[in-house]
Nucleic acid binder design. Structure first.
Length: 562
RNA sequence: UGGCCCAUGGUGUAAUCGGUAACACAGCAGAUUUUGGUUCUGUCGUUCUAGGUUCGAGUCCUAGUGGGCCAACCA
């Protein structure tokens, strides 16, 4: 069994490989993904999901899905459902191993009783302020509250009565009796249970006392025989406490291992702040395509495989990090470049009329669906005298290195002919409305004998055949790189990118898009990758831009103008 | 300044028992291209500092510096 172990690629895998070789837990690997159902999963959770499930896959183990639902005031069934859906969508299966911390409330209660009986826990009537006071500070030892000296019998009685609902919220808590002077504040008599007369989304009104994270998480790991309990760095100071409970309660020795959480440029990762964005209406819900939630990314057009690949590339370490959003964009482009059908869509149209093309003629041209994938085949696209092209593909006074259209200039229409601009028609406001062009009949794509060489190739849509649809162009939600840092000093409103969503109400599309269905990814040539939005109705299609194509020209012209 | 953790190019992650810095993204330069896409090539580091151990240190030791976390009846 320890013969052919896969090569470890990070420090956690090294630990696991060592454990397997030493025969720890009989070489078993069992992880868990333990979200609190108080919000939607985001890209930071993806890192954790891929880590936990990936580890089990790689080393022949299992992964549980466990909802850490110990705080009824924040948790809802809606979130449980969303989390299940998102983990499944990401491609992971937890089989029948779906658990809830609330499933263990009775076990945890029994453990608390054991602790009290062992003289290791007591009921404290102090107010939160008093407790904070008595706790001291990292440099100053704490002092006992008067309640620390209660007898076991008294504690047992009081704790029973806490459970029975005899006391109001906040009147009493159960604390562990560990230390008053540990340099680790988490060891200074941590709170185990608090009173909350609140309805729990699963246990209803059965309980009015709820265990704290520290008294629940480790024990749940133990009850599920989790071998490697992975969490983020900020839980490191909790580890001594995690181990204290294992020792004092004689539990299965799960091991807590901490790794650095994901940080992404131009985005926020805390569920609290994401919730704020939703509640304040800065976005249209948890699944707004600008949100870095799993549901937002899905709607935006990200694929499970790209997200998994992203998590893999990000790696696992203990060092604080800030991942460049460009990496996320890279993985989705990398995948969609290979898989997405190419189509032509004009978002900001001007008319191009070919004066020497017969008025009543139309041609159906054959264009390949994906140059990266010959198996994707070809499709027919109608060509006629009147076309739409992109406004930005014509310039009256072009800069150097411009190889699109300009007065007298030539370019190829993708899959069709080379055209030359003869004259420019403007509207009364002076902006270009139409280009009158000549085409070269012998320059037809694939059978070009014209001998004309052009650099520019433009996408186009035939006016009489065009299909209209709404297109939503998304960009990053925030305009600063380190949003969390900036948000500490300025209100979030100041950090939002005002152009994070641009709606094109009636883009012109080639007719093949009439057949577009949900879940299919398209490359709108020279524009980016798009997918159908659920807002689509029978009467009107709505497309979301997943990501733009890399735009070297934008870079060149930006540099030139600055 | 009490404790714990971290420190490798712009950003991440690697580097078997210490053996002479790798991969990816981004950037820049060029080639290819009927998407200014793709693809390909080149380029970008005195491994935080100072000592020490060693034939040899990114890896070990010491000190310093910088950063992060911890004193919620949140997780």
């Amino acid at each position: 069994m320890s013969q052919k172990l896969p090569k470890p690629t990070n420090f956690i895998e090294e630990i696991i490989v060592r454990d397997i070789k030493e025969g720890k837990h009989g070489g078993r690997v069992h992880t868990r993904f333990p979200p609190e159902p108080n919000g939607y999963l985001h890209i930071g959770h993806v890192k954790s999901i891929v880590l936990n499930f990936g580890l089990a896959e790689k080393y022949g183990g299992l992964t549980n899905l466990r909802f850490d639902d110990t705080n009824p005031s924040k948790e809802e069934q809606e979130y449980v459902d969303a989390i299940r859906r998102d983990v499944r969508w990401l491609g992971y299966d937890w089989g029948d191993r779906e658990y809830f911390a609330s499933d263990y409330f009775e076990d945890l209660y029994a453990m608390a009783i054991r602790l009290i009986k062992a003289g290791l826990a007591y009921v404290d009537d102090s107010t939160p302020e008093e407790i904070a006071q008595h706790k001291g500070s990292p440099t100053q030892p704490g002092t006992p509250t008067p309640y620390r000296f209660r007898t076991i019998e008294e504690n047992l009685d009081l704790f029973h009565r806490m459970r029975n609902g005899e006391f109001p919220d906040g009147a009493k808590i159960l604390r562990a009796k560990i230390s008053l002077d540990s340099p680790n504040m988490h060891m200074r008599d941590p709170i185990l249970y608090r009173i909350k007369h609140e309805h729990h989304h699963r246990t209803g009104d059965k309980w009015c006392i709820y265990p704290m994270y520290d008294f629940a998480h480790g024990q749940c790991d133990a009850l599920e025989s989790i071998t490697h309990s992975l969490c983020t760095l900020e839980f490191m100071p909790h580890r001594p406490l995690y181990n204290w409970f294992i020792k004092k309660l004689d539990l299965f020795p799960s091991r807590q291992i901490e790794f650095a959480r994901l940080n992404l440029t131009y985005t926020l990762m805390s569920k609290r702040k994401l919730l704020q964005l939703v509640q304040d209406g800065h976005v249209n819900g948890w699944d707004d395509p600008r949100m870095m939630t799993v549901s937002g990314l899905r709607r935006r057009g990200y694929t499970p495989s790209a997200l998994r690949e992203f998590a893999r590339r990000v790696g696992i370490a203990k060092r604080d990090n800030m991942i460049d959003m460009a990496l996320l964009e890279f993985v989705i482009r990398e995948e969609l470049n290979k898989t997405a059908r190419r189509v032509m869509v004009v978002t900001d149209p001007i008319k191009l009329t070919i004066t020497n093309y017969p008025d009543d003629k139309e041609e159906w041209l054959t264009i390949e669906n994906n140059p990266e994938d010959k198996d994707a085949g070809t499709r027919q696209v109608p060509f006629s005298r009147q076309l739409y092209i992109e406004r930005e593909d014509f310039m009256e006074n072009p800069p150097k290195k411009w190889f699109r259209l300009s007065p007298g200039g030539m370019a190829r229409l993708k899959g069709a002919y080379i055209v030359r601009v003869d004259s420019v028609i403007k509207d009364d406001k002076g902006s270009v409305s139409e280009l009158l062009c000549t085409y070269f009949p012998d320059s037809k794509s694939g059978q070009d004998t014209s001998g004309i060489k052009v650099r520019g190739v433009l996408h186009w849509v035939s006016v009489p055949h065009a299909v209209e649809a709404e297109v939503r162009l998304y960009d990053r939600l925030f305009k600063v790189e380190d949003v969390a840092a900036a948000a500490a000093e300025r209100p979030i409103e100041d950090l939002l990118n005002p152009d994070s969503l641009i709606i094109i109400p009636n883009a012109k599309m080639e007719p093949s898009l009439r057949e577009a269905g949900p879940g299919v990814h398209y490359q709108f040539m020279r524009k980016g990758y798009f997918t159908l939005d659920p807002d689509t109705t029978p009467g009107k299609k709505v497309f979301n831009r997943t990501v733009t194509l890399k735009d070297t020209w934008a870079k060149i012209s930006r540099k030139a103008s600055s």
